[in-house]
Amino acid sequence: MQEVQGKLLNGLEASKLDQFVQDLKTKPDVAKAVNGPWRSRVEWQGGLKAKGYMRNHVASFDEPEGLGATDSAASAHEHILSAVGACMMTGFIFQATRKGIKIHNCEIALEGTFGNILNWAGLSDEDTPGYPEIKAKMYVKADATPETLEKIWNEAWKRSVVTQTVAREVKVTPSFEAL
């Protein structure tokens, strides 16, 4: 492993990552700003299509044709899988880069199976309509020992915002207004 200061490693400046962590540690206003709130606004696009607007970004959603939809984009629950994986990867790359580890390739394969789709359809109250389990497997090629990489991986998923959001019972506060 090599300490790299001021130079790009994995497409990142390790010194900037260190500075960011230092700011979180010493500047309460920075930590407060990063904590959120984070927001999304989801707009119906006709059929089962929707768009989620997040800051200056947009993500599209649709459903498979079996549901009478057009399958023009991934389903919302598939986005969850990607979000979990992307968040795990963010943590992994962030921490590996801070340790000066060069990453050659990194990939996470995720998979989930609904507890009971009949529940979603209102045909049953048994089980859960959601994923009772999400499997995530990381493949990585990097200049470090497998033991070092696995340790970083374990830290990454245990401290992943999205992973820990879906892994814990999140209080969802729905509200409603008909116009």
């Binding site: 390739n105 990194c106 990939e107 394969a109 998979e111 493949y139 090629k141």
Partner: peptide, 11 residues
């Protein structure tokens, strides 16, 4: 296929 083979796409 990637699932069946248990391999990463980058490999």
């Amino acid at each position: 296929s990637l699932r069946a083979l248990d391999v990463p796409a980058f490999a």
